[in-house]
């Protein structure tokens, strides 16, 4: 599979001088076309910042993002974002159908094509009959489906999702997770999804990228070798799932243990106090030590 997204040496720092806060440090990874990659990291570690840089919503202070080979500066045309806060990301003055059509507004499509694409997208998320309603007439889970439909309607090369299911109840969450995996396989979409839920990252992903505490760096890059067909109960009970989620949990808690260390992990220094346990730290500190100290003070 060709590479869809390539993030190289990404840095993001908020503010300047003494008050500066490094949210993302020297982050590199890539996502192949057709892959569903999950990023899991502790709260406040810089996940949203990372996604915003990738989406071109904010310019990173260092490094580069490439989408199918093109350098990202500003929001690319063929990219879609789904935010956690569905109630704040749907346009309240537009009907559901108009919301879904929104990203098509600026494209050279006839009115009918636009309506058809919106309808298709709504069908795909199981909301065929609600096009004429307004978002606030729908339940939370339905509203998030509308956001997903809107993202699908634009047929993006890359779909970015920032904790998309964090604000819905558990039952709806399971439904939406299965919906997302089904749609992703049907449409061969490439998805990068951020979550702070370990189980969700393993259940959804073809791959899980584990981030360190702030500033975000990649601690591990795990392939999820679960079968493509997943089941909320059976998959979560399977030995493989349990092992994987244990591994992710351990990585999140303590940083990478020596044998599990991947290439990505070795080129980073975590800000965590337990960094000392990590053998590779010493060599790295020599290189980036100056920067680390500045960032911490």
């Amino acid at each position: 599979m060709p590479t869809m997204l390539e993030v190289t040496g990404l840095n993001h720092r908020y503010g300047k001088g003494d008050g500066a806060h490094v949210a993302v440090r020297e982050l590199s990874f890539s996502v192949d076309a057709g892959e569903l990659a999950c990023i899991v990291g502790p709260s406040g570690c810089g996940k949203s910042t990372l996604l915003r840089c990738i989406a071109g919503l904010i310019p990173p202070t260092g490094g580069s993002v490439r989408l199918h080979g093109d350098e990202v500066s500003g929001v690319p045309d063929d990219l879609a974002v789904v935010f956690q806060d569905y109630s704040r990301s749907l346009f309240p003055w537009l009907t559901v159908a108009r919301n879904v059509e929104f990203p098509l507004r600026w494209r050279k499509l006839s009115k009918q094509e636009r309506a058809e694409r919106a309808q298709e997208a709504l069908d795909a998320v199981g909301l065929s009959g609600v096009g004429k309603k307004f978002p606030w007439q729908l339940s939370g889970g339905m509203q998030q489906r509308v956001s997903i439909a809107r993202a699908l309607a634009s047929k993006p090369a890359l779909l970015i999702m920032d904790e998309p299911f964090a604000s819905v109840d558990a039952q709806t969450r399971f439904e939406l997770e299965d919906l997302l995996r089904r749609v992703q396989r049907e449409q061969q979409s490439t998805i990068l999804l951020v979550t702070h839920d370990i189980d969700e990252s393993v259940y959804l992903g073809d791959r899980v990228l584990v981030l360190s505490k702030s500033p975000a760096t990649i601690v591990a890059d795990l392939a999820v070798d679960l079968p493509a067909e997943r089941d909320q109960i059976a998959t979560r009970e399977s030995a493989k799932f349990v092992t994987l989620r244990g591994e992710v949990a351990r990585l999140l808690q303590t940083g990478p243990a020596a044998p599990a260390t991947t290439e990505e992990a070795s080129d980073e220094v975590t800000a965590a106090a337990d960094a000392a346990e990590w053998a590779a730290t010493e060599e790295e500190a020599a290189e980036t030590g100056g920067a680390t100290k500045e960032a911490r003070h």
Binding site: R52, A55, L57, V75, D77, L79, A80, V81, F83, D85, R88, S89, L90, F91, F102, P103, R105, W106, R150, S154
Partner: peptide
């Protein structure tokens, strides 16, 4: 205006003028 709404519009490819 909610910044999330603005981000959503921008992520949908809406230019500053629009």
């Amino acid at each position: 205006i909610d910044p999330v709404l603005m981000d959503t519009a921008r992520a949908c490819g809406t230019s500053r003028a629009r």
